[in-house]
């Protein structure tokens, strides 16, 4: 028990160090970028003394350490500064945009897991067969074609060509703002409001971007599952399970898979983190009003507080999911205890 507490404390310590490093890096990004936050605030034509006064008021004349200190104490109090573009605090902007990203990434992860894990198991069990080859080709395509190409192709085929899905955006304009925001997740909010029209509209809009992201992630999940399963199926304990007289299916699901499940947790956590941060590109293609689009718009306009704040939040999510995988690892693998 003491041992366990110790190793957990070590993990937590390393998480804190990582978060500190993350905050330093994002802080530095805001300082070294060739964007002058003063000019962005006072405008290009402001006289020199106004610029200087604004610079002093923003604390930019202080030494970097002092600036970092005031930055980090603000961050710890939940203040990521204000966006020049939206005139809102960055924190409330993130709270507004993040649910859209979360909704899309979570659905994509669920779909990718439901398809990818069984596909990987089947490919490993039927190694070298036609099924394995087909799964491999599908996965190579999903993994090697950049996601924005897939997204554009998807729009071209299913929106322009076949007219099966609505175009870019998260909602049809007639439903825009019709559903009161509770969670920010449209599928849930529309159900809470009892508006089935809005629900199906949101689902319809989600379909293509979720499919594209799921396909991309599934390729990775399948490949990893297959590799882990091949490894597990080589184990001597597989021979003893078969020597007990168990059927092939029981050997695969009852003996090989439990050995793989723990490793898969890490893969899924990293995939989820990748989906949340990697959605930047997909959101641009689909004009999805999520965190990625917020970040790109801010970046293009030199609005540094949202850039730094969003980067910090995405990084923190990444660290958080890693920590979660670590905790689940301890819960599910008897050998770690």
């Amino acid at each position: 028990m003491n041992q366990r507490a110790k190793s957990f404390a070590a993990t937590l310590g390393s998480v804190l160090v990582t978060l500190f490093g993350l905050s330093v890096i994002t802080f530095m990004i805001g300082r070294v970028m060739p964007v002058d936050p003063v000019l962005a605030a006072v405008g290009d034509n402001a006289p020199a003394d106004v610029v200087a006064a604004a610079r002093a008021a923003m604390g930019l004349d202080d030494p970097l350490v002092v600036q970092y200190w005031s930055y980090i104490s603000n961050v710890l109090q939940g203040d990521l500064g204000q966006s020049v573009l939206t005139r809102n605090p960055v924190v409330s902007d993130i709270a507004h945009y993040f649910p859209a990203t979360l909704e899309m990434a979570t659905l994509a992860l669920i779909l990718a897991t439901l398809l990818g894990v069984p596909a990987g198991i089947v490919a490993a069990v039927k190694r070298g067969s036609l099924t394995d080859q087909i799964i491999r080709v599908v996965c190579i395509a999903g993994h090697s074609v950049p996601v924005f190409v897939l997204a554009l192709l998807g729009l071209l085929i299913f929106y322009v060509g076949l007219d099966l899905v609505p175009g870019p955006g998260r909602q049809g304009f007639i439903y825009d703002g019709m559903v009161p925001t509770v969670t920010g997740i449209l599928l849930i909010d529309s159900l809470l409001a009892g508006d089935m029209g809005a629900f199906w509209d949101a689902a319809h809009h989600l379909a293509l971007p979720v499919l594209i992201l799921a396909y991309f992630s599934m390729a990775y999940i399948t490949r990893m599952t297959r590799a882990f399963m091949l490894d597990a199926l080589k184990g001597e304990f597989i021979i003893s399970a078969r020597a007990k007289g168990l059927s092939g299916w029981k050997v695969v699901m009852g003996h090989a898979f439990p050995n793989v499940a723990v490793q898969l947790i890490t893969v899924l956590a990293l995939t989820y983190a990748g989906l949340l941060e990697g959605a930047v590109i997909t959101e641009t293609v689909f004009a999805w009003p999520g965190l990625g689009q917020y970040l790109t718009t801010a970046l293009m306009n030199g609005d540094m507080n949202p850039v730094v704040g969003t980067t910090l939040v995405i990084g923190a999510i990444y660290v958080g999911l890693n920590l979660l995988a670590d905790i689940l690892y301890r819960v599910f693998d008897p050998r770690v205890k």
Binding site: G235, E236, F237, I239, S240, A241, R242, A243, K244, G245, L246, S247, G248, H255, P258, N259, V262, D333, P334, R335
Partner: peptide
Amino acid sequence: EREMRKLRGGRAGFILQDPKYSLNPVK
């Protein structure tokens, strides 16, 4: 294969070399 499964374990037990590898580590 179905009939073999009745024999395996049922009528003939098979002890392997190293319990470190022949027992399933997560069960």
